[in-house]
């Protein structure tokens, strides 16, 4: 356990960027990102609870964040990290709106099911 902390601490102490990263290493992170995105999408498609669905969109945001950070690392460039800040901003805004909507909808139907809201008009 201490080894882990040491190693992480070492990485932190690195401050700037270490040596460039291989494409093959990058591919690992990209795969994790894509897999997380897919899980988020599957969740969005299958779950019927509005809150969980929004949670799944957050998950897809997160996947995008991992990809951005990995790219930032690969390019030795901080723009990717800056983008993650914006992604967080948008995610926060989205969460605020979404949760407000959920509260509103729940008040009207006493249910969180997305299928309650299937009417095309009105």
């Amino acid at each position: 356990m201490t080894g882990v902390i040491d190693q992480i601490g070492g990485m932190l102490a690195q401050a700037g960027y270490p040596a460039p990263m291989s494409v093959l290493t990058l591919s690992h992170y990209l795969f994790v990102s894509a897999a997380m995105f897919t899980l988020g999408m599957v969740g969005f498609l299958t779950r019927r609870n509005l809150i969980i669905m929004f949670l799944c969109t957050e998950m897809m945001f997160q996947a995008a964040g991992i990809a951005l950070i990995a790219a930032s690392r690969f390019w030795l460039n901080h723009t990717g990290q800056s983008f993650v800040i914006f992604v967080l901003t948008v995610a926060a805004a989205e969460a605020a709106m979404a949760l407000a909507l959920v509260v509103l909808l729940f008040r009207k139907r006493e249910s969180l099911s997305a299928e309650e809201w299937a009417e095309m008009k009105g």
């Binding site: 897919t38 999408m41 599957v42 498609l45 299958t46 019927r48 609870n49 249910s111 099911s113 997305a114």
Partner: peptide, 20 residues
């Protein structure tokens, strides 16, 4: 709640998701 207990069309969703 019913909408929590049962996934909706898991087959289609999983298919689409993993093809993606």
């Amino acid at each position: 709640a019913d909408y929590d207990a049962v996934a909706r069309e898991p087959m289609v969703a999983t298919g689409v998701g993993f093809v993606l």
